[in-house]
Amino acid sequence: MHNSWLFIGIFILVAGVFPALPIILFHIFGPKRQTPEKLETYECGMETVGQTWVQFKVQYYIYALIFLVFDVEIIFLYPWAVAFDKLPLLGVAAGVLFIFLLADGLWYAWQKGALEWS
């Protein structure tokens, strides 16, 4: 088991080198004729107006929030699914109840109108 993670570790390093290498080569050999104007931010042909960190609507946060809750609940279910053969009926029911509670959360968000993209 340890060895397969060693493999993954080496894979992470190599996977980092693979895209980094052409970018570095490109940085060295690619043409560079840079002027301050060229390095300015391009926003539809206008000069940049105001701050870049414009504020965003809260809808983005709500989607991220629902995602976070679902994400955590789903990871609880993976060991349950793997151990499915060893579970008594009660264990299966516990998992189904868990999913039902999860569905409840979605139902609340739906009723509240939090799922509308307005």
């Binding site: 609880f76 993976y78 060991p79 699914a81 793997v82 151990a83 499915f84 060893k86 264990g91 299966v92």
Partner: peptide, 8 residues
């Protein structure tokens, strides 16, 4: 598997 059994 142990974790899955223990959780439920």
């Amino acid at each position: 598997v142990q974790l899955g059994v223990a959780l439920t």
